[in-house]
Simulated scan of single mutants.
Amino acid sequence: MEQPEGFKVKGKEDLVCRLKKSLYGLKQAPRQWYKKFDSFMIEHRYQMTTSDHCVFVKRFDDGEFIILLLYVDDMLIVGQNSDKISKLKKELSKSFAMKDLGPAKRILGMSISRDRKNRKLRLSQESYIEKVLKRFNMDKAKPVSTPFPSHFKLSSKQSPTRDKEKENMTMVPYSSAVGSLMYAMICTRPDITHAVGVVSRFLSKPGREHWNAVKWILRYLRGTSKMSLCFGGGKPELIGYTDADMAGDLDSRKSTSGYLITFSGGAVSWQSKLQKCVALSTTEAEFIAATEACKEMLWMKRFLQELGQEQHKYILHCDSQSAIHLSKNPSFHSRSKHIDVRYHWIRDVLESKQLQLEKIHTDDNSSDMMTKSLPKDKYEFCRRAAGLLEPST
């Protein structure tokens, strides 16, 4: 290594330092790796997308394209011409030690399957979920139909107070189980987002009832482990749904914001999150949720445009007529002036016609499962709308 700036020894400026620590252990290692890879891609006339700096695109004169996605040192390459993809792989192998694993079948614990006849693509984490169930001795548990039933009313009051209770709970792998569920939730399972969000609030002091809720989620996964996120069942259009649950948190009385964004029949982005402030009305809670969904929708819109995917209009669906009215009109100032200025940003977005906010009936709002416990029938509807299907479907 070159001598660090400010540590050069007089008369020995031309010497280099001997590196005793492995490269992976250095703070600058990821940055240096990315800079090296970025310079290679620019050299071969690939453009980095501004929306995601780990996605590179190259368009050829004949109208074809190649998209390369980098995740640390794993790569996915998408293109229309296999010869051009092979050429890129050869160039990569000249500069980097790499393995060509052929057509993508697995990445980051997700299995990828294609049905070329019906033009569908599926993402599944069945093997990962099975490992998690086995790890926590839930592989033979009795399945349940929903991940978070209404009889669970979790709060910090259920945390252990006596020493013996605290000692018993230290033997329970609560944090480990919630962390394992989070990875499934982030990758392919939007249906457990709300449930995992609730149980993750008690990581510091989990109680017996909190652990029962985690086991219930695992029981739900026991019955739905074969489900996969399916794309290709709808038009290649970006469609957003937003919802809020008023004062859902029993401790702080904060509301929960949720959104679900789909593309080509499958969910591509989802979130269930406690709002930063206590909402004073359902209108305010829905208005804040719509603003958060709007931010994500705009990013997804820009990202798709950089990949060359344009559409006529971008619609975000909300089931609150009053929140839609508030986002389009600065009326009722006395009732809304206390709302943080940052949430009024949605008005500028709608005025500039970057997005459209439209009313949807509550029964058709698939983001409902992001904010609250639902009956089985409504829950299954939301799940299907998000593109989560059984293998036979």
Rank of each mutant, 00 (worst) to 15 (best):
175 S>M: 09
160 P>T: 10
104 A>N: 12
160 P>I: 08
102 G>C: 10
167 E>M: 07
149 P>E: 05
193 T>I: 00
104 A>C: 15
125 Q>A: 05
165 E>F: 05
162 R>H: 10
219 R>D: 04
170 T>N: 14
166 K>T: 09
150 S>L: 11
101 L>P: 09
217 I>P: 06
233 G>S: 12
190 P>G: 01
122 R>L: 04
228 S>I: 00
182 M>I: 09
216 W>N: 07
124 S>C: 14
116 R>D: 13
109 G>D: 03
211 W>P: 11
118 N>T: 07
227 M>N: 13
187 C>M: 08
145 S>L: 13
168 N>Q: 12
228 S>A: 15
107 I>K: 04
113 S>H: 11
114 R>Q: 14
179 G>L: 00
150 S>I: 11
186 I>M: 11
218 L>Q: 00
190 P>A: 02
123 L>P: 06
117 K>H: 07
165 E>D: 15
148 F>H: 07
223 G>K: 04
120 K>C: 10
228 S>P: 02
166 K>L: 13
223 G>S: 06
215 K>D: 00
114 R>K: 14
154 L>T: 07
230 C>M: 15
191 D>M: 01
197 G>I: 00
186 I>S: 01
145 S>N: 13
171 M>A: 15
158 Q>A: 09
171 M>F: 09
176 S>T: 14
197 G>W: 00
